[in-house]
């Protein structure tokens, strides 16, 4: 017994959480599917191109014959109504969908975490005002605002700074890419509220602990305390909540793309592919099923992983 104790390494919070996560079969399943999906959308388009010669925008050479073909060996997911290989398009669309999900979540993290931490640490009047603003935003039907935002700023009237970003970071200044960059911010701007509340709550419990007092005593600035000492300690709940924000952002992106407000041609996301597929539903159902099921599977895994992470990182709020 004593030998066992002496040889055991001290377990950190993260190692502990990781062990608990691995015990949760559903979360591990989610993690595996997710890793597979990420690898697939990154390298998949090249493999498909090498194996069959199709990329997401390859138009068929044999004209009308290749349009809306059912799944076959050559086209595992069939072709769309322009004759393009659907597997290549679903993989390419996955890149956009996952990218929108992750980057918008990062934008919301950036805003929500700083906002919540500042409000929580400063406290008093400032905290009161900042949280009242969050309350007001909460009761706004944000989906209406996002629809208005994307409709009026989408397409040709994208703000210059978004165009600049998409030219310099995205590599192409065309309208389609600007629209995707607009999506990052529009979706990030509406999903930071809960994050701000979560982080504020965490900071409120942390700010009276000794390490903050020690930092203050050694002369660390307020800015330093918030961003170097407090925020790293809120990482657990932030990771959990971020994992659950990604699927909800991806759902919103798909919803907007379905309405024609989100991702625009020449780009495609799972949402816009599904929206295209609905048009031919009665005759060529695979055009909806292929992107729809891929998306559902990804969201399914993300939700399971998020649930598992919550149980692993925060055993107290475990849902039994």
């Amino acid at each position: 017994m004593s030998e066992e104790v002496s040889t055991q390494k001290p377990t950190s919070l993260w190692r502990d959480a990781w062990r608990r996560l691995l015990k949760n079969k559903l979360a591990v399943f989610g993690l595996c599917v997710l890793v597979f999906m990420v690898v697939a959308v990154i390298v998949g388009p090249y493999i498909v191109k090498a194996a069959t010669g199709f990329s997401y925008d390859t138009m068929p050479t044999d004209g009308n014959l290749a349009r809306s073909m059912p799944p076959s060996l050559q086209h595992p997911m069939g072709t769309d109504d322009a004759g393009r290989d659907l597997l290549a398009r679903v993989l390419q669309g996955g890149r956009i969908s996952l990218m929108v999900g992750i980057i918008s979540t990062l934008v919301s993290l950036l805003i929500g975490v700083s906002y919540g931490a500042i409000a929580g640490y400063l406290g008093g009047f400032i905290d009161n005002v900042m949280m009242r603003i969050v309350d007001i935003f909460y009761s706004i039907p944000y989906i209406l605002i996002v629809i208005v935002l994307l409709a009026v700023f989408g397409g040709p009237s994208t703000p210059e700074w978004i165009k600049w970003l998409s030219t310099n970071i995205g590599g192409a200044g065309n309208q389609g890419l600007s629209q995707i960059f607009l999506l990052f911010f529009a979706l990030g701007l509406v999903s930071w509220l809960t994050m701000a509340r979560v982080v504020r709550g965490q900071v409120l419990t942390l700010k009276n602990q000794e390490f903050v007092l020690a930092a203050k005593a050694t002369g660390v600035s307020t800015f330093g305390i918030i961003f170097r000492h407090l925020i790293p300690n809120t990482l657990g709940p932030v990771i959990v909540y971020a994992t659950l924000t990604i699927p909800s952002v991806m759902l919103t992106e798909a919803f907007l793309s379905f309405l024609g407000l989100g991702v625009q041609p020449p780009y495609a996301s799972w949402g816009s592919l599904a929206a295209d597929g609905i048009k031919n539903l009665a005759i060529f159902p695979w055009q909806l099923i292929a992107p729809g099921v891929t998306m559902a599977l990804t969201l399914f895994s993300l939700n399971f992983l998020g649930d598992g992470l919550r149980d692993a990182l925060d055993p107290q709020t475990r849902k039994f």
């Binding site: 929206a275 909806l288 559902a296």
Partner: peptide, 22 residues
């Protein structure tokens, strides 16, 4: 329930139409 959370409604709706109508 988790499946219900993960299938977007604009995919579910057309699928229901496909099965029950077509």
């Amino acid at each position: 329930a988790m499946l219900g959370l993960s299938v977007p409604n604009f995919v579910l709706g057309p699928l229901l139409v496909l099965v029950f109508s077509f």
